[in-house]
Amino acid sequence: MQIGRIVRRALRMVIPPALFIGLTAYFGVNAMQGDHGIHSYQAQLRLLDEARAAQVDAVSEQNAWSRRVSGLKEKALDRDTLDERSRAMLNLARPGELVIPYGPHDRLF
């Protein structure tokens, strides 16, 4: 009888702390590496930073394209300037025009 009492007493002394330590370890591991743990939170923050950087790049690219497109509208184009630039780039002239050659290192504008 004495042995049974000693065993029960030992179990009563060991089981509650063991359960407490087990629960603490379980919650500690989940707090660090679980689906909502610290490591997962850090990964989500990195993804958020990457998404914000991609958004900034997309907005800047969209602004650049909108500037280019607005320059192509009819009211933004000057016919004389467009004619001048197209002739300069294509190296063309009309029969009655006077052409003044420039040296290779002289800047036109």
Rank of each mutant, 00 (worst) to 15 (best):
A51D: 06
A76V: 02
V56L: 15
S40D: 07
D57F: 02
A58Q: 07
S40V: 02
D49Y: 01
I38Q: 12
L45R: 13
Y41R: 03
I21P: 00
E61S: 12
Q55T: 06
A54E: 10
A64Y: 05
A53T: 13
I21S: 06
M13D: 01
F20S: 10
P16Q: 02
F20R: 09
W65E: 11
L23G: 10
V14I: 10
V59L: 09
E84L: 14
A54K: 09
T81Q: 08
R85Q: 09
A10Y: 03
I15Y: 03
R8V: 12
E74R: 10
H36Y: 14
H36P: 00
A25I: 05
H39C: 04
R67Q: 10
Q55P: 01
R79F: 02
L48T: 05
D35R: 10
L19W: 02
K75P: 02
M13W: 00
R79V: 03
D80M: 04
A64E: 08
R85F: 14
D35E: 14
T24W: 03
Y41E: 10
A53G: 09
M32P: 00
I21L: 13
R67W: 09
P16W: 03
K75G: 11
R46Q: 11
Q42K: 14
Q62I: 12
S60T: 04
A31M: 06
R12W: 07
G28D: 02
L47P: 00
G22V: 01
V56R: 13
R9E: 15
R67C: 02
E84C: 01
V59Y: 15
P17L: 03
G37V: 06
A10S: 09
R12K: 11
R85E: 02
R68F: 05
N30K: 12
G71E: 14
L82G: 01
L72S: 05
R67L: 12
